[in-house]
Write a protein that binds this DNA or RNA. Sequence first.
DNA 1: TGCAAACCATAAC
DNA 2: GTTATGGTTTGCA
Length: 195
Amino acid sequence: MIHVYRRKIGDLWCAVAVEDEKVWTTTFATSEKECMQQVLENVPYNNPFQSEEKPSPLAEKIFDTLQSFLAGGSISWDFRFEWSHLSKYAQKVLECLTNVPVGYVTSYKALAETAGGGPRAVGQVMASNPFAPLVPCHRVIKADFSIGGFGGGKGSVKLKRKLLQREDKGFEKPSQVKTECGMLKVFPVKFLRKD
DNA sequence: TGCAAACCATAAC
DNA sequence: GTTATGGTTTGCA
């Protein structure tokens, strides 16, 4: 049985779906309705699930993590994602992405160069990212440093920008990080085009 | 700038 | 097997 929980953290709604010690999906949105809708989309359709008020210890831990993340902190990865049902390629892209630090962004292109495939394929993976925002899909932008798209409704691109600006650590120069697939280029949040 | 064509993994037929 | 579809990129006017 999969259990779904929700909570309002700051000005955002967050929700998680967990089963035993595994995390199926996490998500966030500006409204409770959107948020719940997104979680349900990521739970395999014929799996039984139930929605509950009182968080399990694991859910509690994830909410704590989300809270510190939304306050601008980094994430501790001491829980297990259930992503074995995702394609090999998707797993690879998501794994690479987890290495992008707070205060930096990367591009669809750079991610494609490291994880394989093409920029649009990377976009596909982002669009169906089951672990937002823990797997930081909001830190992926277009190669020209414009903001790019973002899942989940209308004002969501604005939300993406807001999240990134909240994460800005004042870094000045591009860098690269090590991933299981090789080096990945990352850029300071500052590089982002204002528009 | 703005538009068309190439790009690559998936989902739907 | 084939076609359509993106959170894209590039080239060329």
